[in-house]
Amino acid sequence: MEQKGTLTVKRGLAQMLKGGVIMDVVTPEQAVIAQEAGAVAVMALERIPADIRAAGGVARMSNLELIRSIMDAVTIPVMAKVRIGHIGEAQVLQALGVDFIDESEVLTPADDKFHLAKNDYTTPFVCGARDLGEALRRIAEGAAMIRSKGEAGSGNIVEAVRHMRAIGDGIRELTVAPKEELVARARDLGAPLDLVTYVAENGKLPVVLFCAGGVSTPADASLMMQLGAEGIFVGSGIFKSNDPKAFSQAIVAATTHYDDPKAVVEASLSLGRDATAMEGIDLRRIPESELLASRGA
């Protein structure tokens, strides 16, 4: 009679988040600011990616008391991150009752070979991807939502653009591929044939696709939506700016009206003269071993 945790309700929650902005927060107070600015969900974290990057060391699932206090503070969905492949952390977050789990390369991977078997859980998962093959592998494992990886905590949009374009290009190539090529395409993508066939026939992923990693300004959000993102994750971009409230409202407005440059102008002007987006990092200055996007493939 009543079925919980089905693919439909897991993917369905991601569908309800479309056109919206999901914000990283590290305190209940920040979560309330995000909700009041119009965030569709918050990602509860101990540290935002920019600070994780600065701190180095091993980054793990956040403190549960902190996550619970954020769940109590807002009515919008609350997400939290687990290390790639960390079954223990994932079971704990599901039992705690978070609404979405991000199996995230921003934390230090627990398993250097395998991701979680996400179909085993009632709670939906979102995973990062750099190209179509990676996105489809995560969906095959049970991800109910995909986000570009970008380079988290960098304030630099270039990796997110690269990933979103790669996913979009991969999808477009499949839509024009002759049917007899699909098995070979699936082999080359390292993805199951049924998902490859779905993409070829429908011209999109079977789950919602968001952008993450490097969004810092209203215009960044507009750019990513125009590249095919169905919504935006903003990590460090809000609470590393000089005015989180104004930045969060402006990025929400620019995400809704991404295709209307005048509206993006208005959103940007609302930041005022003293607006300073988070400081960005030239990715060529980050040693390869410290790049987050290459974790988990």
Partner: peptide
Amino acid sequence: RQNDSAEVELAIPALGEPAFPAIFIR
């Protein structure tokens, strides 16, 4: 919360038979 989101066969008399596949999400 999300873990209680569910698919339900819902009787809606105004729509007649069969029951409607209602999807409840939060």
